[in-house]
Simulated assay, not measured.
Amino acid sequence: MKKTFYSLLILLSVFFTACGENTKTAVVADIASIEIVEGNISIYSTDEATDLTAMATYTDSTTAQINDAAIWNNSDYNTLYMYNGSVSAASNGGSSIVGISSGRFSDEINVSIIKLTDFNITNADINSTGSYILEATGTFEDNTSKVIKRNIEWSADNGAVISVDENYVATITILTGDTNVTATVFEETNTSAATLAPITRTYTVN
C-alpha cells in the first residue's frame, strides 16, 4: 500500500513539474519612445484639417498608433485649431507648437501657417435663376493658388440664399434679378488674423 502511495506521489510530482515547464508568463512590452510622425509641417490658412499621427515604439521594437491614448497639447489656440491630432488654421499666418505626451515620454513639432495674400470668386458666369456652387481661389505667400475650403464667409443680396454643407461647399440659389455675392476670408476669427478686404462679384440674371 505504501509503495502504491509513493508511486502516486512521484507521478503527481512529474505531472506538475511538466506543466510548470510548459507554462509561460506573458511579457508586456513598455513604451520606449513616442513621436509625431509627420514632423514639422506647413499648412495653408484656408485648407481643410490635416491629421497628425502619434506613434509609440515599444521595448520589443513593435510600434502602434496612439492618437487616442496620447495627451495632445497646442501652444497657441488663437493661431491653430486642434482636436485629437487634427489641425487647421485659426489665423492667416503664424505658427504653433503641437505636442504629445504619454507617461514620461513626449514629442513636439512646429506647425506653420502659409498666409493667404489675395483671393477671387472664380465661378463661371451665372446668368439665370437656379442653384449654383460658389468657389473662391486664393493666392498664398509661397505663390501657390488653391481653392479656399475654410475660413471663408459668403453673403448675397436680392433674396438669394447661400448654404454651406459639412464639406464646406457653398451653394447659392438665385431667385430673381441681378445678385451681388460677397466672399470674406477670416472675418470672424481672432484679432491676430490678418483680414483681407471682402471680394464682391455681381451675377447678372438675364
Results as ranks from 00 to 15, higher is better:
residue 101 S to Y: 02
residue 7 S to D: 14
residue 110 N to A: 04
residue 98 V to I: 15
residue 5 F to C: 02
residue 150 R to G: 01
residue 182 T to P: 02
residue 110 N to H: 00
residue 119 F to K: 10
residue 7 S to R: 12
residue 148 I to V: 09
residue 190 N to D: 14
residue 185 V to E: 00
residue 26 A to S: 09
residue 35 E to K: 13
residue 72 W to C: 03
residue 95 S to G: 09
residue 122 T to Y: 02
residue 60 D to W: 01
residue 117 T to H: 08
residue 152 I to N: 01
residue 171 T to R: 11
residue 157 D to T: 06
residue 70 A to H: 04
residue 115 K to V: 01
residue 73 N to M: 03
residue 28 V to W: 00
residue 77 Y to P: 08
residue 196 L to G: 04
residue 206 N to R: 07
residue 155 S to V: 06
residue 114 I to T: 15
residue 133 I to D: 12
residue 131 S to Q: 11
residue 54 A to S: 11
residue 111 V to K: 06
residue 40 N to R: 03
residue 93 G to D: 07
residue 36 I to D: 00
residue 91 S to F: 07
residue 60 D to T: 00
residue 102 S to M: 14
residue 39 G to C: 12
residue 199 I to D: 02
residue 52 L to K: 06
residue 194 A to M: 04
residue 67 N to Y: 05
residue 166 E to W: 10
residue 93 G to R: 06
residue 8 L to F: 15
residue 162 I to W: 09
residue 102 S to A: 13
residue 199 I to Q: 13
residue 84 N to V: 13
residue 35 E to V: 03
residue 200 T to R: 03
residue 57 T to R: 08
residue 181 V to F: 13
residue 3 K to Y: 12
residue 201 R to H: 08
residue 135 E to D: 01
residue 180 N to M: 05
residue 39 G to M: 12
residue 117 T to D: 14
residue 27 V to I: 15
residue 206 N to S: 12
residue 206 N to W: 01
residue 101 S to D: 07
residue 26 A to H: 05
residue 100 I to V: 09
residue 146 K to N: 09
residue 201 R to P: 00
residue 164 V to C: 03
residue 143 N to G: 00
residue 154 W to Q: 07
residue 24 K to V: 11
residue 11 L to W: 02
residue 143 N to E: 11
residue 198 P to T: 05
residue 29 A to G: 04
residue 122 T to E: 03
residue 114 I to F: 05
residue 164 V to A: 03
residue 203 Y to H: 04
residue 77 Y to D: 15
residue 161 V to M: 12
residue 123 N to D: 15
residue 8 L to T: 14
residue 19 C to F: 13
residue 96 S to R: 10
residue 186 F to N: 08
residue 30 D to M: 02
residue 177 G to W: 10
residue 197 A to T: 14
residue 109 I to Y: 00
residue 185 V to M: 07
residue 34 I to C: 03
residue 1 M to V: 11
residue 96 S to W: 12
residue 12 L to N: 12
residue 113 I to F: 07
residue 166 E to R: 13
residue 162 I to A: 07
residue 54 A to Q: 06
residue 130 G to F: 08
residue 173 T to K: 12
residue 94 G to F: 10
residue 116 L to G: 06
residue 117 T to C: 09
residue 8 L to D: 12
residue 57 T to F: 00
residue 16 F to T: 15
residue 73 N to Q: 07
residue 139 T to V: 11
residue 42 S to G: 10
residue 129 T to Y: 11
residue 176 T to L: 14
residue 26 A to Y: 10
residue 18 A to K: 01
residue 69 A to S: 15
residue 93 G to T: 08
residue 112 S to H: 03
residue 70 A to Q: 05
residue 162 I to T: 06
residue 21 E to T: 10
residue 46 T to E: 07
